[in-house]
Amino acid sequence: MNPKVKKIFLWLLVAFLIYAIIVSPDRAADIVRTVWDILVQAVQSLGRFFDVLINS
């Protein structure tokens, strides 16, 4: 993909995120909290997997 197109998409994404936060900050916070919880769960699961793999 063209670097200029990537830059345009990045700016559109940033503008949309700012718009979403301004319009509905509670909903935006819930989404961020949910994504964070998913990431934490994924890292914990990977940690358990490697722990079991090493200790077997």
Rank of each mutant, 00 (worst) to 15 (best):
A20P: 02
I38R: 07
D26W: 12
I18G: 00
T34S: 08
I31E: 08
R27Q: 07
A28F: 07
W36P: 00
I38W: 12
R27L: 14
A28E: 07
A20T: 06
T34E: 13
I21Y: 15
D37N: 14
L13Q: 05
W36V: 14
V14M: 05
F9P: 01
V32T: 07
L12G: 02
L10R: 09
V23L: 13
S24R: 12
I31H: 05
Y19K: 12
I18Y: 02
I18F: 14
I8N: 03
I31C: 08
S24W: 04
Y19M: 12
I22R: 10
A28G: 02
V32Y: 11
L12E: 11
W11S: 04
S24P: 00
R33I: 14
I18V: 15
L17N: 11
V23K: 11
P25S: 10
V14W: 04
P25A: 03
I8A: 11
S24H: 08
L12N: 02
A15D: 01
F16K: 04
R27V: 05
P25E: 06
I31A: 08
A15R: 04
V14N: 00
F9T: 01
I8L: 13
I21F: 14
D37F: 12
R33W: 05
S24K: 14
L10A: 06
I38D: 03
P25I: 00
D26T: 15
I22N: 06
I21M: 09
A20G: 02
L13A: 09
L10T: 02
W11K: 01
I18N: 05
L10I: 12
W11I: 03
A15W: 01
L12H: 00
